[in-house]
Design a protein around this nucleic acid. Structure first.
Lengths: 340, 340
DNA sequence: GACGCTTATGGGAGCGTTCCCACTGCTCAC
DNA sequence: GTGAGCAGTGGGAACGCTCCCATAAGCGTC
């Protein structure tokens, strides 16, 4: 490694030291074909002697590729970082990208006013592809980006209509798992606290709830349905409303863990024992699920795997941008704890 | 905006359309001095008509600045993303960087084997500066990066010896606040569940505990001290050990909220009422602090502000790299809830 | 020994900027 | 009327790399 020279060494200097031409040195660095063993050795020695590191800008200028991928988080800040789900996705994305030597450029598209600059930035001039984390149905960002001709993959569908270039958890299947479990436990009056109807995570989980009931030969009872906004508070509110309207309920499927935590609190406050009187199942398997009282039975999803899948899909799309690719659904599994 | 041309427009084309030279166009874009109003208008019109976006690679090649800052997260993955504290820092960093048009390149330095590539990447060839999130005392990364001549700012000191280029929460002051509060509540036997002694967050908070006791005219009693590793489980273990050894304790200061949650559980299991029999205070004001039973009194720190400070300090350092800058301490405040 | 073919090599051109210098008109003072 | 000074401008050179083409070297074949 020797002492670092005043100015970073260039490829030309490496070539000179190795006693070869610039072209040959370049070939060695880029997994080169057609290079003699002798030349390869000489170049590699020169590289490590000088501590040479290729200049990304110069390379990008000629290849017209930046080897960088943007992760645009267009969710309200509190939500994104409050939810460990997003953190897991980022982790998956980060490591998957690292493995293929791509850089992860993180863009927080927080305030809507910053959207302008964002749009401006998302060009081939800056990144080769975009990963988008946003669950809002009305978001025009995917369209905007695609209009730039940039490959995009969305994590979590905004709504059910989307058919391509997304990776999502199989919410319907997960919800069926949860509700089937409640049925199996002998629960007769199974309620649900759903998420917002305009988010796929909300509507799909509700869809799974209905499907599982149907599979058990039961009909949907509107009186057993209450919607929340995925917050703990809304879960508690919904639970109270359900208890008041339908005191005989003995099972609740919550569309996420946070709402389940709220429901648990409301049940306790109402004097219902969990799981003796009422079984509660959540969705997400967030860390908090293990520390509730009692620990929460929930549907496990792997955010990290989701991140990795997003990267895989994006790399495919970047390799052949012309065609659209079908979305990918990730399986879930039930984790049974003490709340059911 | 018109339909996007087959190939992205270059500065030359903008200049041609505006009827000026390349130099003048460049001057307009870079907040240029010495440009006539007429020329400026012409260039700006041409830019928006062509939808021109400067090519970052070409610019970086000549300016030798990339306008990108790396955020290296050298913590074990579970910890970083499990803790909302880190998420908050990232949010602060992201928005502060966005405001000055710098890109945030996220590097997860997870497995130690990837360290080699990381070191290679962290060069002026790729980023202008580095933000480092790591709390391990033995980490050689800061030194390595600085050896490259790259400006670095560390978030959270690895150990107390570090004097420059860091931003950290004032742990000592926060712990004093917490313990003084317990004293004020009339608690006589105040125990502490500390963090690992080899992390500043652990040792400083313990230091604050000792200082607050001294300020109240009390002596440190080793029997009231137990250390954990910041996990919920370790908090529960420590609490059990303390109760067994010193059943008369009536107050506990936990070095973080997660351990406090564990302690709360152990206290309940032991039949102690909180706060009637024992007051509990945490540190961090994590989201979970509001949903414990009872809600947790804790020391609030602002991770977002910490992120912003890190960016501010890094920008200063980048502007004048030669001199070292003293570290910055962020104040904390006590949030009183029902556990004390 | 000349020819063709393959393999390996050197280096020119060009990627899209910024930097800088030379140049043009002016205005103003003497 | 001349010269100095200045605002405004155009364009050459350079940044460090990859691409590609021309060429050299090696070798088997007729």
């Amino acid at each position: 490694m020797s002492r670092p020279p005043r100015t970073r060494p260039t490829l030309e200097e490496v070539a000179a030291l190795a006693g070869v031409g610039r072209g040959t040195a370049s070939r060695v660095i880029n997994g080169g074909e057609k290079v003699s063993e002798r030349a390869r050795q000489a170049v590699e020695n020169a590289i490590s002697e000088l501590g040479y590191v290729p200049n990304a800008a110069a390379r990008a200028l000629v290849t017209r590729r930046t080897d960088a991928v943007a992760l645009v988080i267009a969710e309200s800040e509190e939500r994104v970082f409050g939810e460990p789900f997003f953190a897991g996705i980022i982790r998956g994305i980060g490591s998957a990208l690292g493995e293929v030597d791509r850089q992860l450029v993180l863009l927080l598209a927080q305030a809507s006013q910053r959207r302008g600059g964002l749009d401006h930035y998302l060009t081939r001039q800056h990144v080769d592809g975009v990963l988008l984390l946003s669950l809002h149905a009305d978001d025009e960002l995917p369209g905007l980006i695609r209009a730039h001709g940039l490959p995009v993959v969305v994590g979590g569908r905004a709504h059910e209509g989307i058919r391509t270039n997304y990776v999502d958890v199989d919410n319907v299947q997960g919800a069926r798992l949860a509700v089937a479990h409640l049925v199996e436990r002998g629960r007769q009056r199974i309620a649900t606290i759903g998420g917002p109807a305009d988010m796929a995570a909300g509507s799909s989980r509700f869809e799974g709830y209905v499907a599982a009931l149907a599979a058990a030969g039961r009909e949907l009872d509107e009186r057993l349905v209450e919607l929340g906004d995925f917050s703990q508070e809304s879960g508690a509110d919904a639970m109270r409303a359900l208890l008041e309207r339908e005191p005989s309920l003995d099972g609740v499927f919550c569309a996420n863990d946070l709402m389940a935590v709220g429901a648990l609190g409301a049940l306790r406050a109402a004097g219902r024992r969990v799981p003796e009187d009422v079984s509660v199942v959540g969705f997400e398997d967030a860390p908090i699920a293990t520390s509730t009282h009692p620990p929460l039975t929930t549907v496990h999803q792997s955010p990290e795997q989701m991140g990795r899948e997003m990267v895989a899909l994006l790399l495919e799309t970047m390799a052949a941008p012309e065609q659209d690719r079908p979305g990918r659904m990730l399986p879930t599994r039930l984790v049974v704890r003490a709340s059911s």
